Lab assay of single mutants.
Amino acid sequence: RGFLEKAAVKKMAKAIMADPNKADEVYKKWADKGYTLTQMSNFLKSKTAGKYDRVYNGYVIHLD
């Protein structure tokens, strides 16, 4: 289950990176699912340092 969630989160993160207008909708879905910042950090780990920082930081702001 965790692997599928991670894959889904990364897919949506890539969608945000391609079209930032989708961010609020995606952040709301993640918040509704109760994803914590720790979970998001783990889901968005990448071999490329900083690749998903913008998405993660946007989610931090959304939760605030």
Rank of each mutant, 00 (worst) to 15 (best):
D53C: 11
K47G: 13
E25N: 07
D24C: 15
I61M: 14
L44Y: 01
E5K: 06
K51P: 05
Y59D: 01
N21K: 12
Y52C: 03
A31Y: 09
D64C: 15
T36D: 07
A7Y: 13
A23K: 06
E5Q: 08
A31K: 09
K22M: 14
M17K: 04
K10R: 14
K47R: 10
V55E: 02
K33E: 08
R54K: 14
V60C: 11
N42E: 13
S46Q: 05
A15L: 13
K14F: 05
K51E: 12
M17A: 04
R1K: 14
G50H: 09
V60G: 07
Y27H: 01
K6C: 14
W30D: 00
Y35N: 00
V26H: 03
K29D: 11
K6S: 11
F43Y: 07
R1N: 14
Y59M: 01
K22T: 09
A18L: 11
Y27I: 02
E5D: 09
P20L: 06
L63W: 05
L44S: 00
E25M: 11
G2V: 12
K14Q: 12
V9K: 01
K6H: 10
F43N: 02
K22W: 05
V9P: 01
R1F: 12
N57L: 13
K51M: 10
K33V: 09
K29M: 15
A13H: 00
N57D: 14
I61P: 01
H62Q: 03
F43I: 08
A7F: 11
Y27S: 01
M12Y: 05
N21P: 05
S41G: 10
T36F: 03
A15C: 12
V26F: 05
F3L: 10
M17W: 04
N57S: 09
N21H: 10
K45S: 12
E25L: 07
D19W: 06
L37V: 09
D19A: 05
D64P: 03
Y56K: 04
K33A: 13
H62P: 00
M17H: 04
T36S: 09
N57A: 13
D24M: 10
K14M: 11
K28R: 13
E5W: 06
P20T: 05
E25Y: 09
K14D: 15
V60H: 08
N42S: 10
G50T: 07
A15N: 06
A8I: 13
E5G: 09
T38K: 11
G2Q: 13
L37Q: 06
V55R: 00
Y56P: 00
K29C: 15
Y52G: 02
K33L: 14
G58I: 03
D24W: 08
M40L: 12
M40C: 03
D19S: 06
K47N: 12
K29I: 15
N42M: 12
T38C: 15
V9R: 01
K10A: 05
D32L: 12
A18P: 00
D64T: 15
R1E: 13
R54Y: 13
L4P: 08
P20Q: 08
D32R: 10
T36H: 03
S46E: 07
K51N: 05
K28A: 09
K28V: 06
R1W: 05
I61K: 14
K10P: 01
G50W: 04
M12K: 04
V60Q: 10
K33D: 06
I61F: 08
A15Y: 06
F3V: 10
I61R: 15
D53F: 06
I61G: 07
K11S: 08
L4D: 12
Y27W: 02
Y27V: 01
D64Q: 15
D24P: 14
R54W: 14
K45A: 09
V55T: 02
I16T: 01
A31Q: 10
F43C: 06
K28F: 04
E25P: 04
K10G: 03
L44Q: 01
G2C: 15
S46N: 06
A49N: 11
A49E: 12
K14W: 09
A49Q: 11
P20M: 06
D64K: 15
L44D: 01
D64E: 15
K47F: 07
A7K: 15
L63S: 02
A18M: 11
G50S: 06
F3Y: 14
A13N: 01
G34T: 03
L44C: 03
L44T: 00
M40N: 00
D19E: 07
R54F: 10
A8G: 09
P20F: 07
A15T: 10
D53N: 06
Y52A: 02
K22N: 07
Y56W: 06
A13C: 05
K51Y: 14
F3I: 10
K14I: 08
I16W: 01
W30P: 00
G58Q: 04
A7M: 14
A8F: 10
W30E: 00
E5T: 08
Y27K: 00
K14N: 13
K11N: 09
V55H: 02
R54P: 10
Q39V: 07
K45G: 07
D32Y: 08
K45H: 09
G34W: 03
N57E: 14
V26L: 05
L44R: 00
V60K: 14
V55L: 02
F43M: 11
A23M: 06
N21S: 15
F43D: 02
T36P: 01
K10D: 03
F43Q: 02
L44V: 01
T48E: 12
K6A: 14
D32C: 15
G2M: 11
L37D: 04
K6M: 13
D53K: 05
A15F: 06
D19M: 05
P20E: 07
K10N: 04
